[in-house]
């Protein structure tokens, strides 16, 4: 080998630059092929639904659909609200409020999971945070678990009346979706 070839020359520059262009070009060509699998425009368009709560009496529950997911809405009894409020948040497996209406990192008190003035209403994404089953507890006569909330039959996760995980393999509380009361008896989810 000759010793004077150690200094980078124009050919080295062209090789490095050429390869860099190929790499960037390949990556940017790959991106559409990855991105096409993400939720499409028509799916994103279904981003909000309105639900009329007037027919739901105290103690009753309804399930709405939002973005293909079931939304649990329960008009809780006074006893259920009290049970949810009288819990020491520090003893919970997940002490985070998991409420998309709040900025994040709030403690998981019942007040932080409901909307002020409408504390009897709990609105949750009805998907078990373990592996995505739909917990039981919406219909009359469903098994609700020992905390009176929801019970996931797949792997035995137990949620309380505020939708917080109390027992079983699920890592997080049931999520509270973004929603607001448009009137006293109507909510807009999303």
């Amino acid at each position: 080998m000759s010793t004077e070839a150690l200094e980078p020359n124009r050919r080295d520059f062209l090789v490095v630059a050429g390869n860099a262009f190929v790499a960037v070009g390949a990556a940017s060509l790959l991106w559409p092929f990855i991105q096409q699998m993400n939720p499409d425009a028509s799916t994103m368009a279904l981003s909000s639904v309105e639900v009329d709560l007037s027919p739901v009496k105290e103690g009753q529950a309804i399930t709405a659909m939002w973005r293909g997911k079931p939304i649990f809405i329960r008009n809780r009894t006074k006893a259920e609200v009290e049970a949810a409020e009288n819990v020491d948040v520090k003893t919970l497996p997940d002490d985070n409020a998991r409420n998309e209406n709040l900025p994040g990192d709030e403690p998981g008190t019942d007040a932080n999971r409901t909307i002020k003035g409408h504390e009897n209403w709990i609105v949750l994404i009805g998907i078990c945070t373990h592996l995505g089953c739909i917990p039981k507890g919406q219909a009359m006569g469903d098994e609700r678990g020992e905390y009176g909330g929801w019970f996931c039959p797949c792997h035995g996760s137990v949620y309380d009346t505020s939708g917080r995980i109390r027992k079983g393999p699920a890592p997080r509380n049931l999520e509270v979706p973004t929603y607001a009361f448009t009137t006293d008896t109507k909510i807009k989810i999303g």
């Binding site: 990855i34 699998m37 993400n38 939720p39 499409d40 799916t43 973005r67 293909g68 997911k69 998907i127």
Partner: peptide, 13 residues
């Protein structure tokens, strides 16, 4: 998971 599903839940997609 949403990338695999192409949505916010398992669907026809």
């Amino acid at each position: 998971v949403e990338w695999l599903w192409g949505g916010y839940a398992v669907s026809g997609v």
